[in-house]
């Protein structure tokens, strides 16, 4: 009887220390927040990414539309943080974040942002005539990019109204339709506008460029552990399958590059 009891307790101990804890452990999570875009697509991203990740194991995708809530998750293990490089740079002083993967699109890993204005605003000497600038990012992001592009001239427009729109193409069209005098957009989106609405494209003047920054990056707290490394591999392999490649395109990426 004594032997059976010992065996029973040993069995229970094994179950609780390995199998069961694995069953009930929180899945390894990809947390996502992008202050460079305001598209309200979180439900779609959650559905599509969870669909891909769950096929690979106990993983999940958690998008945020609120920066503070995203940052509350920043001290967790078993986590990957998918964020814009601008946001990554602002967080680096506070957290030991390390970039593991760099997002790519058409073989590039960096992009510049452009400030462009309606035709009548020919150069920066006319900056003061701008009342509204359309941009897809959060107010803090848009102002930071404007400071980067304009340098000391930013003072001339520091009280300007930023019209927040979901995406860069909306910002550019807002100039064309007269809701803003200028727009902040990724360089690549201007090429898009040229294709889909050449007339509006011709109405724009380029006023300045930001520095080139990485597209989205995938980072971990310190060096990735075993579980995080496995999830990074899963993320890296997304372009291998047609459906998951399409999911990745929802984030504006077509692949990853190891850092």
């Amino acid at each position: 009887m004594k032997k059976i009891s010992i065996l029973f307790f040993a069995f229970l101990l094994i179950l609780t220390s390995s199998g069961l804890t694995t069953c009930f452990a929180e899945p390894v999570t990809i947390y996502f927040y992008n202050p460079e875009s305001s598209i309200d697509n979180f439900a779609m991203l959650k559905t599509n990414f969870d669909d891909y990740l769950l096929k690979q194991g106990s993983y999940q995708f958690q998008p945020f539309n609120n920066m503070e809530k995203f940052e509350e998750k920043l001290d967790k293990k078993n986590s990957i943080y998918l964020l814009s490089s601008w946001h990554f740079n602002t967080l680096q002083k506070k957290y030991p974040l390390k970039i593991a993967l760099l997002g790519t699109y058409k073989d590039t890993i960096k992009q510049k942002k452009v400030l462009c204005a309606k035709k009548e605003i020919v150069d920066l000497t006319m900056l003061k005539t701008i009342k509204v600038i359309a941009g897809a990012g959060s107010e803090a992001y848009s102002r930071s990019i404007l400071q980067q592009i304009l340098g000391t001239r930013y003072k001339e427009i520091d009280e300007i109204r930023i019209l927040k729109v979901p995406k860069d193409i909306d910002a550019l069209m807002a100039v064309g339709f007269g809701m803003a005098e200028a727009a902040i957009s990724a360089e690549g989106t201007l090429k898009y506008l040229e294709d889909i609405n050449p007339n509006q494209y011709k109405q724009l003047n380029y006023l300045g460029y930001s520095e080139a920054n990485y597209l989205l990056v995938a980072a971990t707290m310190d060096k990735p552990d075993k579980l995080e490394s496995k999830l990074l591999d899963i993320l890296y392999n997304m372009p291998a399958d047609e459906k998951s490649q399409r999911d990745l395109l929802l984030l504006g990426l077509d692949g990853w590059k190891w850092k």
Binding site: I39, D40, N41, K167, R246, L249, L250, L251
Partner: peptide, 13 residues
Amino acid sequence: NKSALSSVTNMFN
């Protein structure tokens, strides 16, 4: 055009 997917708000699967 799959490149346009980054502009999508909702997807009906």
